[in-house]
């Protein structure tokens, strides 16, 4: 190992025009946003919604969330995925929490398939925020995948009493399956973050 890692620094409060410009109304194209699929993307169309909460339970309105996921067949749009990627679905989403009146992030996507033998469907997620000097990794699992969740190799490494923090609850009120995933940065119900 010849070189040392470049240190992380907070994304700060002013990332929006650089990283999520279209969402916030700035004149620059976004490389990714909350619309991860399009109308023709194969698979079950779903919505992911959530908030980021600080140690006092206050919503964080200047966080940025990124998600990375497989397509409905569990394939990643990446050359290292030996199953061949789905060129129509990149699987990257990015949303700031500063444009929704309730400071929610929202992703319209497809439900991912299982990406590997024994692995429950999940979405990888990174939290960035002012006040977060290094980014934090977590995963979204799905409440309606109880059987797969029970044998997932990553979930099984999480202490049983904390697993619920990784499981998005489902409502169908909006007509599309909607999974709620609140992220607690601190506190009794602190979300499990991973040393990836």
């Amino acid at each position: 190992m010849a070189l040392k890692q470049t240190p992380s620094q907070t994304v700060g409060p002013f990332f929006a025009y650089g990283l999520t410009p279209e969402q916030y109304g700035y004149d620059l194209t976004s490389v990714a946003d909350g619309m991860v699929r399009d109308d023709s993307t194969a698979g079950t169309h779903i919505r992911i919604e959530g908030r980021v909460l600080d140690g006092q339970g206050e919503v964080v309105s200047d966080a940025m969330i990124e998600i990375w996921q497989a397509d409905a067949q569990g394939r990643y749009a990446h050359p290292d995925d030996p199953r061949g990627s789905n060129a129509d679905f990149t699987g990257l989403g990015r949303q700031g929490t500063g444009t929704d009146p309730q400071s929610r992030f929202r992703f319209d996507t497809v439900k991912p398939g299982s990406a590997a033998e024994g692995s429950a469907p999940h979405i990888s997620l990174i939290v960035f925020a002012r006040g977060l000097p290094s980014h934090a990794y977590t995963r979204i699992y799905f409440a309606d995948e109880a059987a797969a969740n029970a044998t997932d190799p990553v979930l099984s490494q999480v202490p049983a009493e904390r697993r619920e923090t990784l499981i998005a609850s489902r409502t169908d009120e909006s007509g599309v399956p909607t999974y709620c995933f609140d992220i607690h940065l601190q506190g009794n119900s602190e979300t499990v973050f991973f040393d990836v």
Binding site: V31, W68, D81, H122, L132, P153, Q157, E190, D195
Partner: peptide, 26 residues
């Protein structure tokens, strides 16, 4: 502002899977 925002519980180590070993291609 890190006082109320930084996670305080230990990170849970995981073995990197295809989910972490892939990423967007540019």
């Amino acid at each position: 502002s890190s006082a109320l925002r930084g996670p305080t519980k230990p990170l849970v180590p995981i073995r990197q899977s295809i989910s972490e070993l892939t990423g967007p291609v540019y």
